[in-house]
Computed example of a mutant assay.
Amino acid sequence: MKLVRLLLAFVAIAALPRPALAWGEYGHKTVASIAWAYLTPKAKAGVTRLLKAESQVATPECPLKSIEDASYWPDCIRGMGDRFSYSYPWHYQNVHVCKDFDAKANCPDGNCVSAQIARHAKLIANDKVPDREKLMSLAWLVHFVGDMHQPLHAGDAADRGGNSVRAAYGLIAPERMNLHRIWDTELAERSLSEPPGDVPGLLSQITPELAAQWQQGGVSDWHRDGWEVSGRLAYGKLAGVNICEAKPTARVMVDEAYIAATREAVREQAKRGGVRLAKMINEAFQ
C-alpha cells in the first residue's frame, strides 16, 4: 500500500504544471523582455554599451550578456556569499495589507526595493559613474522593478511576504512550501508561460493607452499597486482565511479556483512592470 500511495503521489505531481523557472528568473526575464520592446533606440544603444562591461563585473557564474540576464543577475549572485550579501534587504518592501498604505514603511536607511530603484536609476544617468558600476546598477534596476511588481514583495501580513504561511499547490505540499514560494515559482511560471501569458501574448495586449496609463506616477504609486494586489488577491482569495483577523495555522490551499482568480493579476503586474521599467531606463539614457 505504501508503494501504491507513493506512485499515486508521483503521478499527481507529474500531472501538475511544472515550474521551469521562478519569478526570480522566468518572471524577471518576462518583465525585462517587455521593457526592451518599449525602449527608445537611444536607450537600447546605452544598454548594449553597458553590457559590454560584463567582464569588469567579474561574475562569470552570473552572466550579463542581455537585459534578460541582467534581470536575474541580482538573484544569481546570492550564491556568491559575502561579496553581495549587503543587498539582501533591497529586494522587497512589505507594507501590511491590513493597515493603510505607507510608502515609507519598512525601509531602514534606504535598504528596501523602492529606495534602491530610485538610487540605481540616478546612478545609470550619472555621467561620472564608470560603466562597470552602471552595468550593476542597470541589473539592480531591472530586477528591482520586477520585484516590486511581485505582490508578495510589496505587501504582506507581518509574515515575511508570505514565507511564514505554509501552503500547498494542488497535491504538492513539501514541508518548506509556502505562499511566497508559490507566487515566486508555480503560480508565476504557469500564468506567464501559458499563452497568451507569454511575452508575445502580453505585448499584444498592451495598447498605447494602457502603457501611458501605467507609466503615470512614480515608484511609490507602483509600489501601492503591488501592495493592493497582495491584499485583494494573494491573501484575499485564500479559501477560509481572513488574514486581518488571524494568521492561518493550517496549511492553506492554492487550488484551481485560486489560480483562476489570480492569473490575470500576475500577467498584468508583469506588463505594468515592463512598461514602467522601460520608462525609467529611457529617462536614464535621455
Rank of each mutant, 00 (worst) to 15 (best):
S87Q: 13
S87M: 10
S87W: 06
S87E: 15
Y88H: 12
P89W: 04
P89E: 01
P89V: 06
P89K: 06
W90E: 08
W90G: 06
W90H: 15
H91A: 12
H91S: 12
Y92F: 11
Y92P: 03
Q93T: 06
N94F: 09
V95D: 14
V95T: 07
V95W: 06
V95C: 10
H96K: 09
H96P: 10
V97W: 11
V97M: 10
V97T: 11
V97F: 12
C98T: 08
K99L: 14
D100Q: 11
D100H: 11
D100L: 13
D100K: 15
D100N: 15
D100W: 06
D100M: 11
D100P: 07
D100R: 14
F101C: 09
F101G: 04
D102H: 08
D102V: 12
A103W: 05
A103M: 09
A103T: 08
K104Q: 13
A105K: 08
A105H: 07
N106S: 15
N106Y: 10
N106Q: 13
N106W: 07
C107P: 04
C107M: 14
C107T: 06
P108K: 10
P108L: 14
P108F: 12
P108W: 09
D109V: 14
D109R: 09
G110W: 06
G110V: 12
N111F: 06
N111P: 09
N111V: 07
N111S: 09
C112W: 04
C112E: 04
C112F: 06
C112S: 04
V113T: 15
V113R: 07
V113L: 09
S114D: 12
S114Q: 10
A115H: 09
A115P: 08
A115F: 13
A115T: 13
Q116D: 05
I117Q: 03
I117Y: 02
A118F: 04
A118C: 08
R119E: 14
H120K: 01
H120M: 01
H120F: 02
H120A: 02
A121G: 10
A121N: 07
K122T: 11
K122A: 15
K122C: 11
L123M: 14
L123G: 10
A125Q: 07
A125E: 08
A125H: 07
A125W: 05
N126W: 04
N126C: 08
N126F: 05
N126Q: 10
N126P: 03
N126T: 03
D127Y: 03
K128D: 00
K128N: 03
K128V: 00
V129H: 00
V129L: 00
V129G: 00
V129C: 01
P130H: 02
P130S: 06
D131M: 01
D131V: 01
D131G: 02
R132F: 04
R132Q: 08
R132H: 05
R132S: 08
E133Y: 02
E133R: 01
E133I: 03
E133T: 06
K134F: 01
K134L: 01
K134H: 05
L135I: 03
L135D: 00
L135R: 00
L135S: 02
L135M: 05
M136H: 09
S137P: 05
S137T: 00
L138C: 03
L138G: 02
L138M: 04
L138P: 01
L138H: 01
L138D: 01
A139R: 00
A139T: 04
A139V: 02
A139G: 04
A139N: 03
A139K: 02
W140Q: 11
